[in-house]
Design a protein around this nucleic acid. Structure first.
Lengths: 342, 342
DNA sequence: TTGTAGGCGTTATCAT
DNA sequence: ATGATAACGCCTACAA
């Protein structure tokens, strides 16, 4: 029982002009008489006309749509990035399709295919934790559809990458712990084949080295950073050891919060017995007791950079720099979980 | 320099069959010879053919796309709902467009228009906090495009609504505080024109009444539940009062966490001086010290219900019950922030 | 400033 | 089991 859709032909007929004129009028074409335009717009509004994107896209061979694939949307960081992207992209007249890989390569692959079949004009990706094979992006590369990676980037693919200096951030976090007097710093992090985790780990090692602390492989734990994984690592392993660490650098804030809870339950004092540094400056880092020292991550700014670069590229400007890497600044936010000295 | 797109005509030509046959073959039409099908699929794969959704949608007048508009994606609850919706919807062969209103009516309106122009087959909505005027949904209603509201529903619109029994949840939360010995229970909540907040408030009042505690308007605060708003309400108002409340029921967990932090900084003991109950069972409620008592909200289940109802409707089944209201169960999860007695 | 005509790629209808 | 044809609604050369 749906109303019949109004087309430009219906408008044209009632206005006694051609469909072409209506089409042009609707797009504010300069060659159309102002009065005619007004009549067109008025009638369109009155009849509830809506442009048919499918016909338009079919004809123009362009969708004005940008696809985004992220691991998960449930962090402050990701929502900020998305919000930054959306703002820029909307202003430029593009639409956004967002999908989550839920940290799985297989979901990422099907999402990529869906995006491809939806003919997005460009793709923005942060990789799933366990993605190894990158062949699902080949179709985009072959068709010259631009891909921008951010945060968790694909190092082997030639394209623009927007991220923070994870090495430096890892270095800063670790150095801070060392300055608080920590000597045995546990590092819990994600899959080291992801750049973010690898680079932070390198930063961690470099900081140790620069301060003449030998890297102890037993103090390096890599898992999927879920609540369960943190629980396992700490309760079934770390807390059973003869010598406990005196510092923890863990690469996201919810994991830091879980760890903090577990340590406190085990009767350890934070930061006196173990000083903790997290990552991301997520909401959760502020409300634990003590609050968690963390690395602030400029999500909104990152989102806006990404969107600007992509749109400039799509609109045919700034093409030269499209395969560059953009590094954004981070800062260490010191809170109670690590502050032993005034 | 994009490759030329392969169409069914290209396939048809090379296979010496008609485009019609190729189209049918690709859709696994029963009347097509198995061998022909195989030849079609093989060649399609070889040439990297991809179906053109725009042409297909244009012709079929159906998009197989479902739109979702939510206030924000940054809570565990919302991600669970989305994940539930996506699972069901994907299995049924539909795609999802997700957008956020960021709690603003104006953004919600433009999102709704975008969805409308994208010709979604159905719309799933949880209202922004400040949405008063609902006329942006009129276009959908007029065209008989189904809308399902969940969580924050539009009471005046006839459509399916999926939500929890907020009245009961509010009642349970309040009653629990009363049972812990609270007499002056502060209630901080969102915009009361949203059903979720209104109903929880009603439940709160009913519980007070049933336990012969008079409702004190000074103990009711309505704001936008941001960190800033909680801070303002507590620091500039509540904590300056002569008599402090001895209980707090606040309708989301991050607000509960902020409040807990503020109270502790003010030297109050939780739960002895003030017992706290939050809402949603978000991650954050587990890691504060003490952990926060909260109402568990079945996000995944809610998402799946929503998607099933919508798809049944779109596929022409279960039409009769389309304007019903589905209530899901909740449970109170008692944690340290409210537990005064063993 | 406006109009004509053709085509974007698919699928439904009717025919064979 | 397969084909021919038209139509979905829009846009853009080209023409007037």
């Amino acid at each position: 029982m749906q109303d019949k859709e109004i087309t430009i032909y219906d408008l044209a007929e009632r206005l006694n002009v051609s469909a072409t004129t209506v089409s042009r009028g609707l797009q504010d074409h300069p060659a159309i008489n102002k009065k005619t335009k007004k009549r067109i717009f008025d009638l369109a509004a009155e009849l509830g006309y809506r442009s048919n994107k499918f016909a338009s896209n079919l004809r123009k061979q362009k969708t004005n749509t940008i696809g985004v694939i992220v691991p998960r949307l449930n962090s402050l960081f990701m929502s900020s990035v998305l919000s930054g992207i959306e703002k820029i992209v909307n202003n430029a007249g593009y639409n956004l399709i967002i999908s989550q890989s839920f940290e799985h390569e297989s979901k990422e692959k099907t999402n990529t295919t869906t995006m491809f079949n939806s003919r997005v004009d460009g793709l923005i990706v942060s990789l799933a934790s366990d993605t190894e094979d990158l062949s699902h992006f080949d179709t985009f590369i072959r068709k010259n559809i631009p891909i921008i990676f951010f945060d968790r980037v694909a190092e082997s693919i030639q394209s623009t990458k927007v991220l923070i200096d994870n090495f430096k951030a890892g270095y800063k976090a670790t150095e801070h712990l060392i300055q608080q007097g920590c000597k045995k710093i546990l590092h819990i992090t994600g899959n080291p084949s992801r750049n973010v985790y690898k680079d932070r780990f390198e930063g961690y090692k470099k900081a140790l080295n620069d301060h003449h602390i030998e890297f102890d492989p037993a103090l390096y734990i890599s898992n999927d950073l879920t609540e369960q994984a943190i629980q396992d690592a700490l309760v079934n392993d770390v807390l059973k050891r003869d010598t406990l660490p005196d510092g923890l650098f863990v690469t996201n804030d919810s994991s830091a919060a879980f760890a903090l809870t577990i340590f406190k339950e085990a009767g350890l004092r934070i930061p006196e017995d173990i000083a903790i540094v997290g990552f991301n400056n997520d909401l959760i880092s502020k409300v634990t007791e003590p609050a968690i020292t963390t690395i602030n991550y400029p999500g909104n700014e990152m989102g806006e950079s990404i969107a600007r670069i992509l749109i400039n590229h799509l609109d045919g400007e700034g093409d030269l720099s499209f395969t560059s890497t953009v590094l954004l600044n981070t800062e260490l936010i010191v809170r109670g979980s690590s502050q032993r000295k005034k």
